[in-house]
C-alpha cells in the first residue's frame, strides 16, 4: 500500500476504461470520468443509464468487469475514509428501532476500531452535524416519525460526520419538499466551498444549472463531461435522452438552451 505510487493524485475522482456488467449485460461501457477536487458535480442521464451503478462501483459495492478507479489517487479500498456515501432514502427500512442521533453516529463507525463502541465524542459530533442540518430538536426521536425531507437531512448529517473529502449522494432531492431541497443544496455548496468534492446523482434537469458547477452526462457511456456551461447543451442532452426529452427551445443549434428542458415521463 505504501510503496504504490498514487495514480492521478490531482483528481478527486478518476475513472478509466471502466466496464460494469450485470448478468453479462453492460450497464456501464468503457467509461472515463475525471472530476477535479472542489466542485459540485451532477451525474445525470435517463433511467437505466448506470448512474447509481457508477456510484456503487466507485464505493466498491459493485465489482467492475474491467477498468480502474482512483479517489485522490488511491484505489477505492484504500480511500474508504476519504469518501462518504448517502444512499437513496428508500434503501433502508425507516421502521428500524433506532433514534435519529444513533443513525448519525453510524457515520463515525468507519473511524472506530473493530470492537470499539461509539461514545461521548461520537455523540457530540453527531449533535453538531444535526444542528448544521437543522435537526437538533429531533435527535432523540424515533426514525419512523420523520418526514421524507427530515430523513434526507439525517442522512446528510451522517455523511458530514464522516469527515470525507469526496461525498457521493444518490438522488438526495428525490421526494423531498422544496424547503429541504434548498437547505440540502445550500449545505452541499457550503461543503464544496470548504474544498470538498460533491458528486450527486440527479434526476431534475431543470435545476442542474442552478445547483451545480460540473456535469457528467451518462447513458451507459459518457455522453459529455466538464464545466456546466460547456456541457449543458441541447445537443448533449438530446444525445443522452433521445426522444425522451422535449426541449422547449426552438433553436436546436446546439447552444445552451434558454428554455428549460423537461424530461418527458413515458
Amino acid at each position: 500500500m505504501k510503496r504504490e505510487k498514487r495514480h492521478e493524485p490531482d483528481l478527486a475522482l478518476h475513472i478509466e476504461d471502466l466496464t460494469v456488467a450485470y448478468e453479462g449485460k453492460p450497464v456501464l461501457w468503457d467509461i472515463d470520468v475525471n472530476i477535479p477536487p472542489g466542485v459540485m458535480a451532477a451525474v445525470i442521464g435517463p433511467n437505466g443509464a448506470g448512474k447509481s451503478t457508477l456510484i456503487k462501483t466507485v464505493l466498491g459495492l459493485v465489482k467492475p468487469t474491467a477498468g480502474h478507479i482512483c479517489i485522490h489517487g488511491y484505489p477505492p479500498r484504500q480511500a474508504l475514509k476519504r469518501v462518504a456515501y448517502v444512499p437513496q432514502r428508500s434503501a433502508v427500512d425507516w421502521d428500524f428501532p433506532t433514534t435519529v442521533v444513533d443513525v448519525v453516529m453510524m457515520g463515525r463507525y468507519g473511524h472506530l476500531g473493530w470492537f470499539r463502541w461509539p461514545g461521548k465524542r461520537e455523540r457530540r459530533r453527531a449533535m453538531d452535524a444535526l444542528s448544521a442540518v437543522g435537526m437538533e430538536a429531533f435527535a432523540n426521536r424515533q426514525i419512523n416519525q420523520l418526514s421524507g425531507g427530515q430523513q434526507q437531512r439525517v442522512f446528510l448529517a451522517r455523511a458530514m460526520v464522516q469527515d470525507a473529502d469526496v461525498l457521493f449522494l444518490d438522488e438526495p432531492m428525490a421526494g423531498v419538499d422544496a424547503t429541504t431541497e434548498k437547505a440540502v443544496v445550500a449545505l452541499l455548496q457550503e461543503l464544496r466551498d470548504q474544498g470538498k468534492t460533491i458528486i450527486v446523482v440527479h434526476h431534475d434537469l431543470q435545476t442542474v444549472r442552478d445547483y451545480f458547477d460540473w456535469l457528467v452526462i451518462l447513458n451507459v457511456r459518457v455522453v459529455a463531461q466538464g464545466p456546466i456551461p460547456e456541457v449543458y447543451t441541447g445537443e448533449n442532452l438530446r444525445k443522452a435522452y433521445g426522444g425522451r426529452i422535449a426541449l422547449l427551445d426552438p433553436d436546436s443549434s446546439g447552444e445552451t438552451p434558454d428554455a428549460v428542458p423537461r424530461e418527458v415521463v413515458n
Binding site: 456503487k56 466498491g60 474508504l80 469518501v83 456515501y85 434503501a91 433502508v92 443513525v103 453510524m106
Partner: peptide, 10 residues
Amino acid sequence: FDPLFAGSIG
C-alpha cells in the same frame, strides 16, 4: 439497518 452504507465504509 443499511447494508449499502455498511459496504461503503468497508
